[in-house]
Amino acid sequence: MTTKTIRAEYLKGLWDENPVLRQLLGLCPTLAVTGTVITGLAMGLATTFVLILSSLVVSSIKKLIPAQVRIATYIVVIASFVTIADQFLKAFFYPISEALGPYVPLIVVNCIILGRQEAFSSRNSIGRSLIDALGMSTGFLLALLVLSSIREILGAGTFLGYQVMGPWFKPWIIMILPAGAFITLGILLGIALKIESKTKRS
């Protein structure tokens, strides 16, 4: 059992164990939905919802799950919450649900969520799992926001749909294309590693 403080448990998801930038988990949705800030935000919030509730359920029933079928159990729990998120978006935010397409149902195979159940919720108390899920999803949301802001501002000259660049600005079309997603994330990973090696040395 770790003796981390609640604060440290939350903060580790933001940087030290940031799911996207440090653990390279959940890269598919990260790349796919960050063409605009609004879709990135929606995906981050939907994932937050699923991760927190799945961690809550898994950590409360962890003693009842036989070890052999634990993965299947986690998947069913996660799939149920993804279905709720998907139906909710379809009912209340139809345009966003359309823009996200198959990526909302695909939260079910997001390795961040399954990874946290296996690595954390299944062996920690409900409270700790909740803090851990909150930290991880904030880290995921932050990574999505940084990536989608860069891509929307450079690729369309807008932020959340509002014009932020002057009329002199020529949008870099490549940034909204798939290629822009790969290249921007590659550079961000490099920057994250650079910062990490700097802080380690000092």
Binding site: P178, G180, F182, I183, G186, I187, G190, I191, S197
Partner: peptide, 14 residues
């Protein structure tokens, strides 16, 4: 150095 591994792989994929 910082781009080794996943970083450069993503840029190549781009």
């Amino acid at each position: 150095e910082p781009l080794k591994g996943a970083g450069i792989a993503l840029i190549v994929a781009g």
